[in-house]
Structure formats: C-alpha cells, structure tokens
Design a protein around this nucleic acid. Structure first.
Length: 271
DNA sequence: AACATTCCCTGCCAGC
DNA sequence: TGCTGGCAGGGAATGT
C-alpha cells in the first residue's frame, strides 16, 4: 500500500514527465472517486502544470489557473503514465489526459480519490489541512516527537498511524520503525522513556528513507509510475513476517492486532 | 474532546 | 474444481 516513500517515488517519476504539460480532461468509471465541480473543471481545463508535490500521502498537481488536482491512492491505487488513447489498464478507474500523455489511476479496491479544487480551498476540501508534521523535514526532531506524544494515551502504533500527528506513515513503516527501535507496537505512549522516543524518532526517518532509497515497498498492489515494483519488501524486518524467524535473533515473530491493524513484532527484540 | 468502531471495496488465497 | 469466508487497510463517518 502506498505510504510516504511510495508516494515520493511516484512523484519523482511523474514530475519530469508531466511538468509543463496541459491538463485536458478527466474521466472515470467510478463516479465517487472524482470530486470536482463544474467550476473547478472549467477553470482547470487547458491549464498548465506548474508543480507536483507530496503532502503526507496526498499528491498535489498544481495548475497555473490557481487550481489543484489532488490524488490519494489509499490502499490499492497506482498512477501509471501511458501514451494517450491506448487501451485501459487492469482496474483503471480514472484517466487524466494531458497534452502529451495520460495518467492512469488503477485501483482495484476503489478506495482512492481524485479532487479538483481551487488553490484557495484544496487543503480544506481534501483534508490536507489536518495533516501533521512531515517526518523527513528538519522540523521533525526527537523533541517534536516527544511533544506530540506528551500527555497522550493509547499505543505507540496508533499514534504513529495518526496522520494529524505525523503525515505519511502507514502500517508497513510503523511496524518497521518499532522494530528498529526495539519498541513493542502496543506499548502505551506514557510508558516510553525519552531514550526510547529518541530511538524511535531516528528509526522512523531511517525506515522511510530506506523505503525511498529502494523505490518503495511492493506488497500486493504498489507499483511506480512505470508500473514497476519497488525493492523495499526484500528489506523488511517486521511487516509481513508473522510466524517467520526474526532476522536479528531468530525468535518467531508474533502476528497480532494493534490499532485495528495487522501488526508484527519480535517478542525478544521488542519489549 | 478523545477515543473506539464501522464502513467503504474487491482481489486474493487457504481450506473444504 | 469451484465455492466460501476471512483478510488486507487509509481515512471519513458514526458511535460512545
């Protein structure tokens, strides 16, 4: 599933391919997946793409008419660049036609969404305004993480998945960061020491950065803008390894549920 | 206000 | 072989 590193990879690939092109039209076979008004549609039509960037797991394509195309891939979404007027890809739901090429939004589970909004209100209409700190910026310090968790209740994993605190971490990188820092994912945050929070902080960055360096984790659905898989799934210590031996100590990894999510940890390494 | 649960969806796969 | 039930889960909506 696309999390921060996967979205980062897609954007990096898309950017040189679509910058400077003109948005022509959007079509969908699944109406609830596209949220646009006649006004924002007419304002965006024919507009030039000036920038494409990421916020949390959201993709923003900025147009020169003060309009923004926002995409969220959710669980199973992919964005694939294809020549215009070629046959639909498997599970292609939404097609964004540009002047020179097209972007195909393929999404088997139909959870993904595309919005077209004015620059003025895209953050409000998409929920981007609620997002917390970007974990790969200098503002995200160990102290900042400690502040976010201070006085809070609940498990650390729940808070790592909370997009209003830190934007972009999903189930895979939450489990990986907990493994790196030797923290059991169901540890109550009030029981974490300063030392543990500091270790967790560097582990979050390390897990995400490694994902980016390997062009993302391909479990079931993720593919980059060329439809190719990433390599990070080969480098995971926790996610997807329930019942398998811990890579570090050989103890059988435990699979359980934390924060209503499938969760894997090593009962020996993570206390 | 803060927390937990339900829902949206459908491909995939183990088990019968 | 073919069916079925369980699982995957981000985030909005709903419930407590």
């Amino acid at each position: 599933m696309p999390e921060l590193p996967e979205v980062h990879t897609i954007i990096t690939d898309l950017k040189p391919k679509i910058l400077g092109q003109y948005f022509q039209k959007i079509t969908t076979t699944h109406k609830p997946a596209v949220l646009a008004t006649p006004k924002t549609l007419s304002k965006s039509k024919g507009a030039k793409i000036t920038e494409i960037s990421r916020r949390g797991k959201f993709i923003n394509i900025f147009l020169n008419t003060e309009t923004v195309i926002t995409i969220h891939l959710r669980m199973s979404g992919r964005l694939i660049i294809k020549p215009k007027n070629t046959s639909a890809l498997p599970f292609e739901r939404t097609t964004i036609e540009l002047s020179e090429t097209s972007i195909r939004f393929c999404d088997s589970r139909k959870f993904g969404k595309t919005w077209i909004n004015s620059l003025e209100d895209y953050e409000k209409n998409t929920g981007i305004y609620k997002l917390g700190i970007e974990p790969l910026t200098p503002d995200f310090t160990a102290q900042k993480l400690a502040d976010l968790l201070s006085g809070k209740k609940g498990t650390i994993k729940k808070h790592l998945l909370d997009q209003t605190k830190i934007a972009g971490i999903g189930n895979i990188y939450a489990d990986e960061a907990c493994f790196y820092s030797n923290i059991k994912p169901d540890t109550e945050v009030q029981n974490l020491s300063t030392k543990q929070i500091t270790f967790l902080h560097s582990s979050i960055i390390k897990a995400l950065q490694q994902g980016i360096n390997n062009r993302g984790t391909s479990i079931a659905n993720y593919a980059d803008a060329y439809g190719k898989t990433g390599r990070n799934q080969e480098l995971l210590y926790a996610y997807g390894r329930g019942g398998l031996p811990c890579i570090r100590c050989n103890t059988t990894m435990i699979k359980c549920r934390v924060a209503s999510r499938g969760t894997v940890y090593c009962p020996s390494c993570q206390q």
